[in-house]
């Protein structure tokens, strides 16, 4: 179980989260939706302890990530798998070595066993044949799946996915969707999928949280969230992908004419 309690986070003068509460139950896939730049990646970084909130608490099981010391944090991270937005594979290592990396770093397994585990993990994402390739030789979809295999290498209890569907063709998207769901159900994980792809997220999530403007504007099962659109114009705009609405109100504080040096004649 992962919990955020009244979390505030700001970058400079820009408030990213303004007193946000979230709960991510074990065994479920939770999709966190929101327009670009609403702090979805920041949410994952808060859970992973890479950034700390200005106030509020981030709890993973009973560990308070927002206060944890380095050792406790590293112990916690060993139980987490993170799929980064661009895969973040180590470019100097082959796919197989990438998957073996966390195993070699955190276990004393012998090489023969590591090889077997790597093959199993790669088989699970359909990349066994690509084990000797370098990341540069992979397509975007393959790289994402290789990174997924690496994230799963240590059999984590928590999986964090950062925009897993961005830039994927329909087939790799389908493969990824099925993998995320299957891995979660097979291993009883807590999965958090951060994305702005509404239909994909709604199709696999048990729970959906929609954030915009530093607060939660919708939460519940996919059906519940769809039903909440009537009460929240921003939610309706985001789910419908409407061009006009509260979400794209101009961020500029001064009128355009002032920036152009026009008008303001007194």
């Amino acid at each position: 179980m992962i919990e955020l309690e009244d979390v505030r986070f700001a970058r400079g003068s820009q408030v990213i989260f303004d007193g946000v509460d979230m709960r991510f139950p074990r065994g479920q896939v939770t999709a966190v939706l929101g327009p670009s730049g609403t702090g979805k990646t920041t949410l994952l970084r808060l859970i992973g302890g890479q950034v700390r909130p200005a106030s509020g608490r981030v709890l993973v099981d009973d560990t308070e990530v927002s206060r944890a010391r380095r050792k406790a944090l590293y112990a916690l991270r060993r139980r987490m798998g993170v799929l980064f937005q661009n895969g973040a594979l180590f470019t100097d290592l082959t796919v197989g070595e990438n998957v073996a990396f966390p195993l070699r770093a955190h276990s004393r397994l012998d090489e023969a066993l590591i090889r077997r585990i790597v093959l199993f993990k790669l088989e699970a994402v359909g990349l066994r044949a690509a084990r000797d390739k370098y990341p540069a030789e992979l397509s975007g979809g393959m790289a994402r799946r290789a990174a997924l295999a690496r994230a799963m290498a240590l059999d984590p209890e928590i999986m964090l996915y950062d925009e897993p569907f961005a830039g994927q063709d329909p087939v790799s998207m389908g493969v990824l969707l099925r993998l995320i769901r299957r891995i979660n159900d097979a291993l009883g994980l807590t999965s958090i999928v951060v994305t702005h792809d509404v239909s994909e997220a709604l199709s696999i999530a048990d729970q959906v949280i929609v954030i915009a403007g530093g607060r939660v504007i919708g939460r519940g099962s996919p059906d519940e969230v769809l039903a909440q659109r009537h009460d929240e114009p921003a939610l309706a705009q985001f789910l419908d992908g409407a061009a006009e609405g509260p979400l794209n109100a101009s961020d500029a504080e001064t009128p355009l004419a002032a920036d152009l040096g026009l008008g303001m004649a007194r």
Partner: peptide, 18 residues
Amino acid sequence: TTEQLAALEMMAVDPLRR
């Protein structure tokens, strides 16, 4: 830039040391 250092950190491997 390619988040490889962040990936190390999230794998509980200290990039400074490694």
